[in-house]
Structures are given as C-alpha cells and as structure tokens.
Design a protein around this nucleic acid. Structure first.
Lengths: 342, 342
DNA sequence: CGCTTCTTCTTGATCGATCAAGAAGAAGAC
DNA sequence: GTCTTCTTCTTGATCGATCAAGAAGAAGCG
C-alpha cells in the first residue's frame, strides 16, 4: 500500500513479488523485496489474504476437555503427534482448541482454520454444537459416527470384548469393569453407566458386557471415574477391594486407570495377577512392561484423520462419499493378567 | 450480507447481533439469530473480522524441529501443556508450527496468530528469521536472550554446574558429558562442541566444563548426539564404554539421553551407580524413580511464556521494558548417582 | 412546548490482499 | 508494414466484517 506508492508500482505488483514470482521481472521483484525489508514490511497480511482466498493452511483440532490433559496424557499427545506429522509434511499449521464443559466458551467459534478434527468430545458439549454449525470440513475421531461426515474410530467394542474374553479364558468369573463418565464427583460403583456421554466409553462398556453375558456370567460390577487419570484408578480399586466379594479380574477403560488400580492393589498387599488380574486399554507407553492391554494405533489414527481432513479441504467435491474408517486393535498379553485362582 | 438483505436490516446490525448484543433490541437480535440458523449462516467470518480488528485470539508456538517430537517428548509436551492452560483460561487458541531445518518451509510465515512463543529453535533456523521479521509480539523461550524481547529461560548453566559439582562431590574425577547438537549423522565423540546451534546446549556444556575446570580436572570427554532421544543415548554409552579409560560419571543434556545411557550400561553388565554414575537434566516424568537429575519447571515455563505473550498482545505499550525471566533449577538426587570407586 | 438524552438502527469508509481484465511496449511472423 | 503474441505491469471490483458518524424516533425534564 504505502510501500507500493513509495516505489511507484501498483499494489498487485507488490503482492505478486511475494506470492507469484513469475508474474514480474526478477529485477523489479528484487527491488521490491529489498525495499520491503528496509521499510520493515513483514510480508502480506494473512488475514487479508485468507479473507480473499478463503484458505488459511491451518488444521483445527477440537480437543476433549482440557488442553492440559491433551498434552499430558501420552495417548492423546501421540494422537496429536500423528496429526502433526501429516500436517507438517503438507505445510499446514495446527490449531488446538479445547471444548470445556463449563467456564469460558470454547475458542472454537473464534479460531481461524480450514477444517477441524473433532476428537473425543462429549456428545453434549456446547463446543461440539458450535463446531458443527461452523460450516467447514470436519473429521470425527472417537465420536459416534455420523453418516454425513468423515469418521475415524477404532474397534473399541471388539477390543473390549477381546479383553473380557481373555480374562474369561483365564478362568475368571467375577469381573469388574472401570469406565470413565466425565463429570464432577468421585469414582463410584454405578448400576448402569451405559449413559456415559463419551461414545468410546459406551462402546467399550458394551464390549465387556457382551463378552460377560455370552459367557453366561452375572453382569460385571461397574465403577465409573469422573476423569481419566491414575488417581481415579486408585480410588476405584479401593471401592472394589471394599466389596464383600471383590472381583478376580478388572477390565479398565484406559491404561492410566489400570495402572492406578495396580498401584492400589499392590500397596494393599494384593498380588497382580496371582490374586487379581488387571487389563488396560490403548497400550500407552507406560503400559510397558507390565500391563496387559488392548493396543490401538493412536498415532496412525491422528495421521489418518489429518489426511482425510486435508483431502476434504483441498478437494471439496461434495460428491465424495464420506469414509468411515475403523482401525484394528490387538490384545497384548503382558504380566498383569493370569489364571484365576481355584 | 445476503442475510442482511433478506431480513431488511443493515449489515452492521447483523454484525452486532453476533458480537455486540447491547447494540440492538433483544427482539431483533433473536430474529436475526434464528434467521441465521435457518439459512445456515455460521457466524461472522473470522478472516474478515481479524482483517478489520487485527486480532485473532490465537497464540502461536514455533517449535524446535519436528512437531512429532514436540508431542512425544514429555518435557516439551508439558511445556505446551503449560502454555495451553494459560491460553485456555484467557480463551485463546494455540497454533503450533514447526521450524524444520530442511524440507518444506515452515508454515510460520503463513499461520495466523497474534503473537508467537519461540521455543528452543536453532539459532540459524530459517523459520527463526521469518518469525523475527513478522512484526508481532514475541516471547523467546530457551533461546539466547535478546535485549529487545521478552525472554524466559531456566538457569541452565547453574544447573549443569550443580550436576557436575554433585558428581565431583561424590569423588568422581573422570567425567564425560553428553550433549545434543542437531544435525545429521551419528553420536560421536567431539573435541569442541561449544558450537552447538542450541543455546541451551551451549549453556549446559559451559556449566559442566566450568565445574570440572574449577575442580582442576581434565576437560570432560564430550559426546554429541544428533537428536535428543533414547536411542542416541544408547549409542553414546557404547562410545564411552569403548574408550581405553571409560569415565566414572556421565552428565547428560536430558533425561531421555541419560536413560538411554543407563539402559546400555546395564545391559553391558555395568552397575549404575556403583560402576558408573549417570545424571540427567529436566526431571522428566520418566526420570522417576531412578534417575538423579536437575529439575526445571517446564510447565511453569510454558505458563509464564503464555502470560507474557498475552500481556504484550493486549497491552502493546511500546514503552514496557521487556522482561528477562530466569527460572530456578534444583538438583534431585535419586539412585543413579553414587560415590566414585576407590 | 422546546430542549437534551437515549435507544436503535443505518450509511459510507476502511482493513489489505487477490482476481479478472486490460493497457503499453517489445518481439516475432509473414 | 501490419498483425499477432508475449511479457510486464496497472486498474477496478471484491472478499466480509467493523468503525465512526449520524439519522429517526422515543423518552425525560423543566
């Protein structure tokens, strides 16, 4: 603008000097760039460019609840790493916003992005609604699949079923399961937690119950934790140990919960797996070397989601039919599960 | 625009319905909002708004080298968590971009943000230059302090000195140090690695050398790894063990490197700390329960950087003198260091 | 009634780059 | 010499919200 006038050239020419070198002579381009550097002109305004072009080369990630959790939990951090790796390759930046259940409204309504990956957000989160209303490319990850959108999930139900079957195969008949249903309050034994607002939690719960039911056993005792975290696993273990007839095996929604349970059991003098078997979910790095778990490809999940999103952004053919990917899981047997006592 | 015409009101009124409720009657506002929902109007365009206002409510983070590393390494993930926690509170989104040494240019030039936290970027990274040229609020973290900018650092040199003094105090006289100097190639023994392009690495190296020198010992053998990672620690340990006279204590740039070293030593039958002492740096979660290390407040570092940046963004008084913060470190003695053999 | 003040809404200008179209001049074709 | 083609650069319109200023009408006050 001012720069253009100073040099006696037009704004378009200055614009081209930065973003379209073939549209002007090398000589003039050099003159413009060096004059720009002198004046301290920091390149074209991105806001203006993206207003005109409608592109920002930014992928959004709408994340669960708290961003602190997103980065601290190894599983979600590596999911992000998967996204980041793909984004980086394609020269996209990634913007991460939280979907807080309460408090200040999610910045999702304000954040600049070409599309968004919605990861493990509560079904009834206000941020989810906003994200859906913002009309832009979208990939759902660990959410209830929607027919109109690209979705990436893992075989949660089958994985949970495999976990329970593994325990049943070892002779366990009194199973407990520990899930997470976001909310305030403490870990507690619940009657029916199929109501969790997390799709993944519901699926895994269904998988456990299905296996237990088809083996003909009583429905498993269910403990529900308010948050995914080790300390809540510890509390859950306390509750289960206090039962008149404690379970002989415990299936958990995550490895963090499982490790919390193991900690409490061990410090109560209970031997894992001789007295009680424990199985986790995810195969987080910390599951090694002890915890038996169900492995899910969390990093690939992120990469796949990013690729799907970038494809939508760059080729917005409305005709493309949305893909619903379900990634495989695998039972990893380690030392925390063993045969039931006679 | 179209919406405004449909309702027979002006664009400003529609704009106000979304962003300034007190400027119009509740009645009209409701009408506008419901009409918007009907038409599928997803709210004001952020690009346009940010073009006009110059604000995006987004904090940028320019990150080291690879984003995958940023999320996988617990120390940097928690640094991000610290930023995220503050950003979240204030309703800012965070955009993370990498500063790759090679390959596609960093999206830093393209990404929309109100300011940027530059974290542990190589002195001569092209992205750093670009970030500096983009004229916006800036906080340098783990970079060589610049007089004109807000800077956050930890007492790297003092911490390294404390680490070396701890070893010397235990009677060790033959020290080795293992640093990281980004680049291709393998871990190798180097003569002078003061040339690392990472400020933090140079500081820590200076701290170790200072302690060794003032104790009157020979300069420590120095191994340089190309990347911060456990496997490079393992290789470094191999090199040190192959020396005619291996060191009796090893100080490392990071806990990851240190743990790699411990692994190799142990599998070579060397007892840590009886035969060789190892000390790390950072006090990453995985340092527990074994590794002696220097604790640095990586999460607080992130939070502080975010606060400084938001302050710059929201109160751009040019007069404000930049703050140079140096956060304290602390020696945490665990089991990987012990008295030198006689 | 005449005056100020408040609420509610509108108009014109603006942020800064990009696109589509076209002008000015040089070069090549016959 | 004229006609086409190419290179290099410019002009006008546009993206969509926001700001500053102000108009129209209602309300308050003496």
């Amino acid at each position: 603008m001012t720069l253009a006038r100073q040099l006696g050239v037009s704004r378009t020419t200055v614009s081209n000097a930065f973003s379209r070198p073939d549209q002007l002579s090398a000589d003039l381009r050099d003159r413009i760039l060096s004059a720009a550097a002198e004046v301290g002109f920091s390149g074209p305004s991105l806001a203006a460019a993206s207003l005109r072009t409608g592109k920002t080369r930014t992928l959004g990630v709408l994340f669960t609840d708290s961003l602190t959790y997103a980065f601290s939990d190894p599983v979600s951090a590596r999911f992000l790493a998967g996204i980041a790796a793909e984004a980086e390759l394609a020269g996209y930046a990634i913007t991460i916003v939280s979907a807080p259940r309460s408090g200040p409204p999610s910045p999702i309504a304000q954040a600049v992005m070409d599309g968004v990956i919605i990861y493990s957000v509560d079904d009834n989160s206000p941020a989810l609604k906003i994200a859906r209303e913002r009309d832009m490319p979208r990939v759902l990850v660990d959410q209830r699949p929607e027919s109109g959108a690209d979705c990436v999930n893992v075989a949660d139900r089958a994985g949970a079923e495999a976990a329970a079957k593994h325990l049943i195969g070892l002779g366990h008949q009194r199973l407990a399961v520990v899930t997470v249903a976001a909310g305030p309050g403490e870990s507690a034994i619940v009657e029916d937690s199929a109501l969790s607002s997390s799709f993944v939690a519901r699926e895994r719960l269904a998988g456990w119950r299905q296996a237990v039911e088809s083996a003909g056993f009583a429905a498993p005792v269910t403990v529900s934790c308010p948050v995914n975290g080790r300390e809540h696993g510890r509390r859950a273990a306390g509750l289960l140990l206090a039962l008149p007839l404690p379970p002989s095996a415990i299936a958990c929604l995550s490895d963090e919960i499982a490790l919390g349970i193991v900690e409490t059991l061990q410090s109560a003098g209970v031997i894992v797996p001789t007295d009680i078997s424990v199985i986790g979910f995810d195969d987080a790095p910390q599951a090694r070397p002890f915890l038996t778990t169900i492995q899910q490809p969390y990093q690939d999940k992120g990469a796949l989601a990013a690729r799907l999103l970038m494809e939508q952004i760059e080729r917005p053919e409305r005709s493309r039919s949305p893909s619903h990917e379900v990634l495989p899981v695998r039972l990893i047997v380690r030392e925390s599960t063993g045969p039931a006592r006679r």
